[in-house]
Amino acid sequence: MTSIIQVNNVSKSFGGVVANSDISLSVEKGAITGLIGPNGSGKTTLFNSIVGYHPIDSGTIQFEGREISKFPVQKIARLGLLRTFQQTRIYGEMTGVENMLISLPHRKMRFAEAFGCNGAEEHERAERLLEFVGLYEKRFLRAGSLSFGQQKLLEFAMALMNEPTGLLLDEPTAGINPTLINGLIDRLRRANADLGITLFVIEHNMRVIMNMADKIYCLAHGELLAEGSPAEIQSDSRVIDAYLGAH
């Protein structure tokens, strides 16, 4: 297995707060990798560093062997590395279908092609993916009127529409009805297996991540605390201590 995202000794501070300190990890191509840790342990900061949302203080980040730590967000997105947001971001004034059509992969589009209209093929793909996440019935509703959980599913579908190679998901199950979570796990797995998208997932729901991930990294206080298979992580006393606050 080759790694698709390679993070080496990355540090990031905001003023005096060290959010990430000397973190190294790698995400295997085609796998589902988990990132866990207590609140404030630096998970989202690490995601933001990887996708170019802010510059890092030191270290290197590679995507498919290419150094990306100096690239801006759009450029990294066009390389095929996408992220979803913890505070879900969709285009609220547009319908579900319009949200999907905007998410067509612009990296595969020449500028002149932007002056074309979306054909039946694109509409069909948009509707198929909306059906995949279970939003087909609501496809013509204003996206802003959907519930938080539904917006989350829409954002996931938009990411799939973009045909990424790697997808960073920031708490995909937060705010989703517990009865729908099993369905979502299944969809994430299918996106990974059928569409071949590498997933890197921040998740607080241990049942979800332990079920899904091939490998898990655990952060605490901005440092990499543990790594290993779900079984190893579950039995790691340092991880349990970090969550329960023991020293």
Binding site: V51, A77, R83, R89, Y91, M94, S103, C117, M158
Partner: peptide, 22 residues
């Protein structure tokens, strides 16, 4: 056109549009 849609996307949430590679 797609151009119009992309321009609307910038209006609704430019940061999201950037994150989607527009």
């Amino acid at each position: 056109t797609r151009f119009g849609a992309a321009v609307n996307a910038i209006r609704d949430d430019e940061e999201k549009a950037e994150a989607m590679g527009i």
